[in-house]
Computed example of a mutant assay.
Amino acid sequence: MRILIVGAGAIGGYFGGRMLQAGRDVTFLVRAGRAQELNRDGLIVRSALGNIDYPAPPHVASQALGGRYDLILLSCKAYDLDAAMESFAAAVGPDTLILPLLNGMAHLDRLEARFSRANVLGGQCLISLDRDASGAIVHLNDTNLLSFGELDGQSSARIQRVAEALSGAGFEASLSADILQDMWEKWCFIATGAGITGSMRASIGDVLVAGGEGLVVKLLAECAAVAAKANHPVRPQVYERFVKMLTTPGSKMTASMLRDVERGAAIEVEQVLGDLVKRRDAAGLAPNDLSVLDFAYTQLKAYEARRLRG
């Protein structure tokens, strides 16, 4: 299977690097600056599950894309989706499968509109990654799950080929029979984590020390109510696991959105929180008083406004 990884940042670089190590036919689609880094330093990943030092990984610029690919792994930030779609459009044929690992859900409709529903799979990953000052990708936890599936939940011949390509590649590859449910549940979790740690500028543990457990639990409940209205209620055992993870005393958990705020970078506030607000209001769930979701969204939008003004 000919695989194109759109971007060689934290997520694309990690999963693409694992696949390269496993002998898969992988090429990274990168901009000029990242191409220079890969040529100079190679692909570097630091992980408790095994480091990667891959010299001169295969990469290509958008204007030099040659032919169609079988699978496109899309790992850009959600706010870069339009530019990313334009960059890899030449690689998409009628049988090309696009596996997005973006936050939120709105990207599915946009990918279908730009290409076709037949081209698009569902996907999500559970992993914490960042890049350090040297440009190396740093794996921050001990999970590296990538789950994927057909949007209708069917077990097709083509999704089985994707499963074969991703399995045994140094990470946990899981073919899901209900990937949309998985994506909604992850969205609720990351919206809670990003909303709390991003707006409070603190780890979960620090928020709990400050007496914020009630805010954490309320935000998760608000997010879960939107998912339930969309016919994807968070499963009870999953909800209990989320509550435990988000209310563990001493937890150092922070969302990538907080790390982006701390470095003064762009954030996915619209895709992670804003879209939940819009769906909540459209479903008639808007509260009479200010909600935790509203507060977190407004606080992070204010950061974004100040950043753009500055």
Score class of each variant (00 low, 15 high):
residue 50 G to C: 00
residue 119 N to T: 10
residue 25 D to A: 14
residue 75 S to R: 02
residue 197 T to I: 03
residue 246 L to T: 08
residue 87 S to P: 02
residue 33 G to N: 11
residue 54 Y to L: 13
residue 71 L to S: 04
residue 31 R to I: 00
residue 50 G to R: 00
residue 14 Y to R: 04
residue 77 K to E: 03
residue 287 P to K: 10
residue 93 G to F: 00
residue 74 L to W: 02
residue 257 M to N: 09
residue 123 G to M: 07
residue 295 F to I: 09
residue 150 E to R: 09
residue 243 V to K: 11
residue 64 A to F: 04
residue 100 P to T: 05
residue 25 D to Q: 14
residue 97 L to I: 04
residue 4 L to F: 06
residue 107 H to S: 09
residue 218 K to Q: 15
residue 190 I to E: 01
residue 16 G to P: 03
residue 70 D to M: 10
residue 34 R to A: 02
residue 114 R to T: 13
residue 299 Q to W: 07
residue 35 A to D: 01
residue 124 Q to L: 14
residue 263 R to I: 13
residue 147 S to P: 02
residue 178 D to L: 02
residue 124 Q to V: 14
residue 153 G to V: 08
residue 207 V to W: 09
residue 110 R to G: 05
residue 46 R to K: 10
residue 150 E to A: 09
residue 57 P to H: 06
residue 248 T to C: 05
residue 100 P to R: 04
residue 157 A to V: 15
residue 138 V to G: 03
residue 3 I to W: 02
residue 54 Y to A: 00
residue 280 R to I: 08
residue 108 L to E: 07
residue 92 V to R: 01
residue 280 R to E: 12
residue 24 R to P: 04
residue 248 T to A: 11
residue 176 S to D: 12
residue 283 A to R: 07
residue 20 L to A: 02
residue 188 C to K: 11
residue 297 Y to C: 14
residue 296 A to T: 15
residue 150 E to Y: 03
residue 284 G to M: 08
residue 170 G to T: 12
residue 118 A to K: 13
residue 159 I to R: 13
residue 226 V to E: 03
residue 124 Q to A: 15
residue 304 E to W: 10
residue 292 V to C: 14
residue 60 V to A: 04
residue 221 A to M: 05
residue 44 I to T: 05
residue 197 T to D: 04
residue 292 V to F: 10
residue 139 H to Y: 03
residue 112 E to W: 01
residue 28 F to Y: 07
residue 138 V to L: 12
residue 79 Y to T: 11
residue 270 E to I: 05
residue 14 Y to M: 04
residue 157 A to N: 14
residue 277 V to C: 14
residue 238 V to Y: 06
residue 32 A to R: 11
residue 296 A to I: 12
residue 43 L to G: 06
residue 266 A to R: 14
residue 96 T to D: 03
residue 199 S to N: 02
residue 173 A to W: 04
residue 156 S to I: 10
residue 247 T to D: 05
residue 248 T to Q: 15
residue 160 Q to H: 12
residue 10 A to P: 01
residue 240 E to N: 00
residue 120 V to M: 05
residue 225 A to I: 00
residue 238 V to T: 15
residue 75 S to V: 12
